[in-house]
Design a protein around this nucleic acid. Structure first.
Lengths: 146, 146
DNA sequence: CATAGTAGACAAGTATCTTGACTATATAGA
DNA sequence: TCTATATAGTCAAGATACTTGTCTACTATG
């Protein structure tokens, strides 16, 4: 029996929810208990030498919301703000060692979850699934699902 | 080049986010502009003759949070509360006509998004994708991704 | 050098949850 | 039947993750 589009949609949403929960649990198991999913999305958007405004664009949220998340992560020792040598108004947001360790742990936790998927279907099915997801998920900001 | 597990994970999260955004836009296009994703999750959890407490279990959130969402949807004309003939403490939450129309619109909007996926890959790839998603997404509450 | 644009901070408000405490009703056991 | 316990729902307060609006300091353009 073929699944309806609606069933495919809800299964996709459940899968994403379970992935987020799995990453969250994996981070907690690795000692990062003060990180929430929203912080993970920020980490994922972070590349080198980004300003708050740049992160806001990458995340698709406002500068103010970004600044609040960055504030929290600076307080908790995951990020620091450095003056931008090329712009007196701006600060560059950089990962601390702890922040880098956290991103590594998050990637491992995500990998563990995806490996669990791998074990439930054939190698060929998983490869097709992965390929299809990459094909149909448009590039763009990685944001919370609301 | 095979994608890493991390890339598969992030693509899955982007896909889910785009699905939620698409449903949201589809609902707005059909005239339901005062519905938010959290309300959609509640609609999805709703079957006939459910109490607030039952919905809370189905959604995986507290009774209080459920009651607040139901309050909002009653105010906006999507739901009504009826006394439960079998339990003097309880109220049955039922869809109004408008609420039913909204769930239909949401399913159509979701279907439109999934059809967009369909068009980007072969029929066989989509069928495998759909099957794999159903296999690896564990049953359980359909909740927001954080 | 004047003007317009951008980075970020400050303040207030909204949506979606949480925990804790409470009332009213239901149910199960002595 | 009476009592103890569990459950449905409400009220209140607080946390998190956003929003809009406003403002200052600095940059860039012409």
């Amino acid at each position: 029996m073929a699944a309806t589009d609606w069933q495919t949609a809800t299964a996709t949403l459940r899968l994403a929810g379970q992935l987020v929960d799995g990453i969250q649990e994996g981070l907690a198991a690795r000692g990062f208990t003060d990180i929430r999913p929203a912080h993970g999305y920020l980490f994922a958007a972070l590349s080198t030498d980004m300003t708050t405004a740049g992160i806001a664009v990458a995340l698709g949220i406002t500068k103010q919301a970004t600044a609040q998340l960055v504030d929290t992560l600076v307080e908790r020792g995951y990020l620091s703000r450095q003056p931008d040598p090329r712009d007196g108004r701006a600060h560059l947001v950089v990962l601390t060692d702890r922040g880098y360790a956290c991103t590594q742990a998050a990637e491992q936790a995500a990998s563990d979850v995806v490996n669990g998927w791998h074990d439930q279907v054939s190698k060929a099915d998983f490869a097709r699934f992965s390929h299809t997801v990459h094909t149909i998920a448009k590039p763009g900001p990685l944001r919370p699902s609301w």
